[in-house]
Design a protein around this nucleic acid. Sequence first.
RNA 1: GGAGAGGUGGCCGAGUGGCCGAAGGCGGCCGCUUGCUAAGCGGCAGAGGGUUAACAGCCCUCCGAGGGUUCGAAUCCCUCCCUCUCCGCCA
Length: 424
Amino acid sequence: MLDIELIRKKPEFVKERLSTRDKTLPDLIDEVLELDKRRRKILTELESLRAERNKKSKEIGLLKREGKDTSIIEKEVREIKERIDSLEEELREVQGKLRDLMLRVPNLPHESVPIGEDEEDNVEVRRWGEPRDFPFDPKPHWEIGEKLGVLDFERGARLSGSRFTVVRSWGAKLERALINFMLDLHTSKGYEEILPPHLVRPEILEGTGQLPKFEEDLYKCERDDLYLIPTAEVPLTNLFRGEILKEENLPIYMTAYTPCYRREAGSHGKDIRGIIRQHQFNKVELVKIVHPDTSYEELEKLTSDAEEVLKLLGLPYRVVELCTGDLGFSAAKTYDIEVWFPSQSRYREISSCSNCEDFQARRMNTRFKDSNGKNRFVHTLNGSGLAVGRTLAAILENYQREDGSVEVPEVLRDYMKADIIAPA
RNA sequence: GGAGAGGUGGCCGAGUGGCCGAAGGCGGCCGCUUGCUAAGCGGCAGAGGGUUAACAGCCCUCCGAGGGUUCGAAUCCCUCCCUCUCCGCCA
């Protein structure tokens, strides 16, 4: 959520920043300003009426103790009350509308974010590693996986429909090895390992920004009013919601492995083959809760912590900075890490690292007491470290050999207790 | 799932319709004093919002959340959430 005071004081600035995302957003701000004005007008009037009522009610108490008649003054208060009631209803309506609107306004892009419309305008920041030269035609991961008996698409669909895959034998083992490897790496760098619930309340998703706008993308358990998490970012970031943290406890670093559940409502036809886009996939997530002064440094560190995974796995990648038009709803700035897929001869997203500044903190009401004793909103960051299914796919492709077997990356061999995955 | 108890400020805890934003204690901050592995005395201190040049003043709201009753609610009623105890069920 944006700071309403900022919108009031610098509406043109806010509109200019939002228009870099989407030209229609400034209209929302005009609506916000209008509602805010109405809200304050009602509030001022309402408060002076309440003050009057409070004063007179106190008088009634005093008069009654003296045994005096209070019928006239009671009638006055009753009249005031009627006006209060109708103003309160008006206020509730305006405030509800305002809140709903505010929850649908995305974060302001940071000034350093390149202006652009879509992913075409993202800016490559750096590359690491050399894509391997294959003496044969590299196969896509789904072919390799099926041939090795590690990806079973047919039975996955039988159980749950399209975009569900069964991972078997050495594939399951590789997936587990990856999860352990990633968690071990991150915890060695000071991230606390967390095992959060996978089902959360609606207000939790509102806290991180998935609700109310992206309801369609979520799986919901209707009878219990709970949602399956689309990413561990959701429970981790919300962990301290409503709390006032101590400044000396910042920064907080957390990591978690969870499955992620996404309806992929808007992506019909995209990435139909393989395991790039699934309704359920594993991810190791990184979340930081930090002092506002340090959040951009922390973003750089977070991104390099995610990159470290790919370096150790020996997978070539590049880092791109998302342009304003491609930025996620809650993010002020985002780096995507894209890994090399030889069969497609291109880099594909495997991690997304964002600084949300105080956008989520405001929604969750997570604050800290600064050295002056003032309560301020924290900044929150999140990044994949990494998407495990895509990592597995990338390993299958980048480490494939002509005979259809796949070499196990060196750092995983102890976890796997194997050097090679060969057809059964 | 059934029966019961309860949710008050950083913590503990009083408060059953008006003088309660809330006693008291602990902890915290400031000052004084004594003079020493600390005590005593005095003072200050919650959050959000409106008004405003103002982190001055004034005002409003907040005693788990949301509704309601009442001239007036922490106190009465309803719904929900959470915690605890007992029973049942269960990996």
